[in-house]
Design a protein around this nucleic acid. Structure first.
Length: 260
DNA sequence: ATGTCGTAACGTTTACGA
């Protein structure tokens, strides 16, 4: 089972690029972030004709997450638990049942948090505390499950081409990285790093200042796997070449395969 | 170089978020 995560930066602007990539990469599941659309504005037909079921959790203009799946999406829930007043659309869950295993999928768009300090950074850290709570509950289920998406976290210096440019940024502040490590260290496997070591692997290049042309990237899109899911993983890759196309997102897809 | 995008709005340009 091939499962991808992809921050598309707007479904209206990215529909062609997204369907082109789906046709080539043929993921069974695509977990999307920054759809920047209300649920009613998210197109279903282009995905239905390719065999995908669609579940969305959107809002006007900003944020928004979705899951596309060739398998039926069961037990869909929307919103990260822990704050009834949080109206930002950043979390969606669903279960898919493969030939061998059921997988609980969590799609997330973690707050950016800039500038530091400030209310947006406070919101990021508070959101991560709620994420940790959900992660603990997920582990307690002792089933194959994953949390995938745009974490807006650069885990280590080797995950940035120029880490010195990010020292004051919410994506790389010690508090942000510590919160990410606390979650990983509960017992999750960070899929990409379980299979590939060393610098030079990125999932985001800013539109500004020729970041792509200079390969000034960062790795901020991640899969965290429960032990039961990690045991099923057979591959994890980044579709870097997508970034060179016409009208690209500033992120590229990251995907895993599971023997599920 | 405050450098680029995507979205929305009392839109032919500005504001915001990233």
């Amino acid at each position: 089972m091939k499962i991808a995560t992809f921050n598309i930066n707007g479904i209206k602007a990215r529909l062609g690029a997204l369907t082109d990539w789906l046709d080539e990469a043929q993921p069974d599941v695509a977990i999307l972030q920054e759809i920047k659309s209300v649920d009613e504005g998210f197109p279903h037909e282009p995905f239905a004709e390719r065999g995908y079921n669609v579940a969305t959790h959107g809002q006007k203009s900003f944020n928004g997450v979705a899951i596309l799946s060739k398998l039926p999406l069961e037990d869909v829930t929307r919103g990260l638990p822990g704050d009834a007043d949080d109206d930002q659309a950043r979390w969606i869950e669903a279960t898919v049942v493969g030939p061998k295993h059921a997988i609980r999928l969590c799609g997330l768009y973690l707050p950016n948090g800039n500038p530091v300090p400030g209310p947006k950074y406070d919101y990021k850290l508070a959101w991560m505390a709620r994420l940790e709570a959900r992660a603990r509950d997920l582990l307690a289920e002792e089933m194959p499950a994953l949390m995938a998406g745009d974490y807006n976290i650069i885990p280590q210096a080797e995950d940035a081409a120029k880490p010195e440019q990010w020292t004051e940024d919410a994506l790389f502040r010690p508090e942000s990285r510590a919160a990410f490590r606390r979650i990983v260290n509960l017992g999750f496997t960070e899929a990409f790093r379980a299979r590939t070591q060393g610098p030079g692997h990125y999932s985001f290049w800013d539109y500004q200042a020729g970041a792509w042309q200079r390969n000034n990237g960062i790795r901020i899109d991640h899969f965290l796997l429960t032990p039961q899911a990690a045991d099923l993983m057979t591959d994890c890759q980044i579709d870097k070449d997508i970034r060179a196309r016409e009208k690209p997102s500033d992120h590229v897809p990251v995907w895993i395969t599971l023997d599920a």
